[in-house]
């Protein structure tokens, strides 16, 4: 059996007295698209942030590509990873944010090339060629010299996807990538993500787009109250939900 790209075992996380995650168990196989749905505050985003070392987990174990997240285990003891090691791991995991978080002081091209040049030490020319190719892939070749705030939300998010792809990640995390978009701009971003899924990228997508989850997701995970309540094939989870809370949730969003 191949190593799962993401594996979570009894993952707990709380902020102060607020228990956000209460025992998450999940496996994401390489090349698979996992869509996480659920009401806001259910811990979906926090789980994504744990995978990318943006938060530290309190209990349980989390692996990415067979390697423990945040710690090194030696002789049954956990050692915290150094900043340098965490950064190296992060550079292999890409993240797309709800609010795009493009760098406003850099042009579209520089947004896409800054990671490869500064972190992966690619040559400027190589990075530029690759960026041009990626921007073409998301349909933004003509915006290469523009600055982020000259673009629409949908265009900004597609640049963010190109920026993430430029790092040649083995795993991509999407944190509600279309929630901040005007309804008519959602489609262009979902199309780009759909194409990405078809190309075999491993993706974990937190989303409220049930259509996308049904069409593109290999697995749909429903979270509520810091737990995974139901998980399975999209048509099982979305069309024949077993759990009452899921039924209730779906009746509101569909």
């Amino acid at each position: 059996m191949t190593t799962p790209m993401v594996k979570a075992e009894e993952v707990y996380k709380s902020f102060g007295s607020l228990e956000v995650l209460q025992g998450i168990n999940l496996e994401v196989a390489p090349g698979e698209v996992t869509c996480m749905i659920g009401p806001s505050g259910s811990g979906k985003s926090t789980f994504l942030r744990l995978i990318n070392h943006l938060e530290k987990l309190d209990a349980g174990r989390l692996w990415v590509d067979g390697e423990l997240v945040g710690y090194r285990e030696k002789n049954h003891r956990l050692y915290e990873l150094k900043d340098r090691e965490i950064c190296a791991k992060r550079s292999e995991i890409a993240m797309v944010f709800q609010r795009f978080n493009l760098f406003p002081h850099l042009s579209v091209l520089d947004n896409v090339t800054i990671g490869p040049i500064k972190v992966k030490r690619q040559s400027a020319n190589e990075a530029k060629d690759r960026a041009a190719e990626l921007l073409q892939r998301v349909g933004l070749s003509d915006k290469i010299g523009a600055y982020p705030n000259q673009l629409s939300g949908g265009q900004q998010q597609r640049v963010a996807i190109a920026r993430a792809l430029a790092m040649e990640p083995k795993l991509m995390l999407f944190d509600e990538p279309t929630s901040a978009l005007d309804p008519e701009l959602v489609g262009e971003v979902l199309d780009a993500m759909h194409a990405l899924a078809d190309s075999g990228m491993t993706m974990v997508v937190v989303t409220h787009e049930m259509g996308f989850a049904r069409e593109v997701g290999d697995t749909v995970v429903f979270m509520d109250g810091g737990r995974i309540v139901e998980a399975g094939k999209p048509r099982d989870v979305l069309v024949h939900p077993q759990n009452e809370r899921l039924k209730n949730f779906l009746s509101k969003v569909l």
Partner: peptide, 9 residues
Amino acid sequence: EAAQSLGMR
């Protein structure tokens, strides 16, 4: 966070 997720220190 965006800079960190690109692997920047």
